[in-house]
Nucleic acid binder design. Structure first.
Lengths: 345, 345
DNA sequence: TGAGAGTCAGCAACCGCTCCCAGAAGGGTT
DNA sequence: AACCCTTCTGGGAGCGGTTGCTGACTCTCA
């Protein structure tokens, strides 16, 4: 592969020469260790830097200091589509907000190998000080290896079992779903269907569990047909809802395991002329920005995704800077956002 | 600042030792220059690598090879909110799609200094092989300096005047707006208002120009009050539309300079009980995913944003790999997406 | 047997910067 | 005057790779 030959830019060595100091001195001064040197030397170096248009080479700096000031955001290949992944998008916002002010950079990593060791070669390549794993999947090669590589990591959007040894930041999936079921039951619903997320998402499984637990706690034993398998996307919600709408006697409420699913269900109802919430109530989870825009506006559980992103960044930085690895989980509360897609029956 | 001491991982030197070869040999083999060495040596090195769990250090590699295989995505501070920036989000998707398969990584950069030279220190810090500038603003410090630093760059979402010396990838803002105006006029509209984007966006200015040109081409001279200043966001569209709706005799159509603005206008109409499209037609530009979801579904001009992202990546890689800098602009066609927010009058 | 060609591995000079350590210079004490 | 501190600067050994060059070795063929 041909590589362009670019104009050389001034190095620290040149800077040191034109300022008439040693490289070490110049380095110190440019790294803000100004107190080590006399005001006159500092001024000389700074002037020379300005005059030369000196810009430090961050790669060299990282190599020497073994610190990159960069965080990697790891997404599964199939998730790396921001337009269809409002969750990842919102997490990114939180990360950006927390990271940029502290002069950390952000790198997007999507492994494309399959073998776990190869994947970790892509993830832990020395260019990042830490990793945020966004919603790693159950069978993902990323999780196949224990986080032995002492690279600080946090997991967002998947609550992994303790054995995995990761610090997880997420909402409380089970309780969120249980709250949603309780809310619908409070409105008199009992024939409540669920559009289930994909089995390879930890959250999907936990949400189903919450649904089943709360339903049975109220003496309802939902038949299998009430639970429609799907992915986590709008189109999947539409298809799944079409199936659920054919159940007789009809369900009076449908829970989307996330907002996208619920909005797909909303569209299915619209297409089939089923009025929401008059004929069927629909709810989701996440409260993505679109949830307020659809008709009828979606009642949903708000996940503090942005806050989760911020916390992920902070937890990661803490690990990086103290060297102490965090374990366990930090589960955020969700709050019910009542809009217009639910009604008693 | 305390730095965690991490477990050392094997270096090329160790690898070479355990494989019983020289560092250079090991390096060649791991860089896929396998043809330089005998099959037996290759096997020995590969085995040792597997056994040691060797992972190359990309930082060191970048320093030595002066090639990082990383692209920087530069966003203005105020734009680095993905949840409210469907445009940047869609561009990112295109970049990801084009870059990841070619083993390039993607880094998000948001300058937080103000002085142009300081900004370029952040942008061109040696960690990227090229830069994608997403919708740089008119008075941005990023643009204050000519792209003299021979770092390959492309601009996306802003069509800069030639003098700036950047290769720009964008839609044809003026003609897109003119087509929209023509479309409305074709429906008999003449009292057409415009919600204008912010003055610091090149696209906003070009779109206003297109509006004015096409209106006057049809003998309509829009009074100043028909043009409502705004930002590029939903909330801004709502406020601006409130003003436009008070004009008497009423406007029969409102153009949002982008979809977010148009959707804000839609909400303003809903709040004031003005039926769309019966009382007023509303259109936007971009065709963001939400445009199809709102009520009524928004008629808009589709920008091939994803394609723009892909092209940006390809143009950038071409510059990086050939060393020849591109100039000028590549303007993509937009296409009218007819939905339900327009009607004759 | 010796020259020439062709393989293949090792050596060593970087890449640009950090950071530790030694030592020079200057000032104050006794 | 000798000694000790303090303050400041320079030297140099890495960080973990890449890369061009040298030269040893084998093979072929006259």
């Amino acid at each position: 592969m041909k590589t362009a030959r670019r104009a050389k830019r001034p190095t620290l060595k040149q800077l040191a020469e034109t300022a008439g100091v040693s490289i070490g001195t110049a380095s110190n001064i440019l790294s803000n260790k100004v107190e080590l040197h006399s005001a006159e030397t500092v001024a000389r170096v700074l002037t020379a830097a300005r005059q030369l248009g000196y810009r430090p080479n961050r790669v060299a700096r990282s190599l020497a200091a073994r610190r990159t000031h960069t965080i990697g955001v790891v997404m599964e290949r199939q998730h790396a589509v921001f337009t269809r992944n409002p969750y990842a998008t919102a997490v990114m916002d939180g990360l950006v907000d927390a990271l940029l002010p502290r002069e950390y950079q952000l790198k997007i990593i999507t492994p494309h190998r399959l073998e776990p060791h190869a994947v970790w070669t892509e993830l832990d390549d020395g260019t990042v000080d830490g990793l945020v794993l966004i919603a790693p999947l159950r069978e993902s090669p990323i999780l196949a290896l224990p986080p032995t590589s002492a690279l600080p990591c946090v997991v967002v959007g998947s609550t992994l079992p303790d054995e995995y040894g990761y610090y997880c930041i997420d909402i409380d999936n089970e309780n969120t779903m249980r709250a949603l079921v309780r809310y619908l039951i409070g409105y008199g619903h009992r024939r409540i269907g669920l559009i289930k997320g994909p089995d390879n998402h930890w959250s999907a499984i936990q949400r189903v569990q919450g649904y089943l637990d709360e339903m049975t706690a109220h003496g309802i034993c939902p038949p299998a047909e009430w639970i429609a398998d799907s992915n986590y996307e709008h189109s999947g919600g539409l298809l799944a809802a079409e199936r659920l709408l054919q159940i007789t006697p009809p369900l009076t409420a449908i829970i989307g395991s996330n907002d996208l699913l619920a909005m797909g269900a909303l569209d299915a109802c619209a297409q089939q002329g089923v009025p929401v919430p008059d004929a069927v109530s629909i709810v989701g989870i996440d409260d993505t920005p679109m949830a307020a825009l659809v008709k009828p506006p979606l009642t949903t559980m708000r996940s503090p995704i942005h806050e989760i992103g911020v916390h992920a960044a902070e937890a990661l930085l803490q690990q990086i800077e103290t060297g102490e690895l965090l374990r366990g989980a930090r589960l955020f509360e969700t709050t019910l956002i009542v809009r217009e897609s639910v009604q008693g029956c």
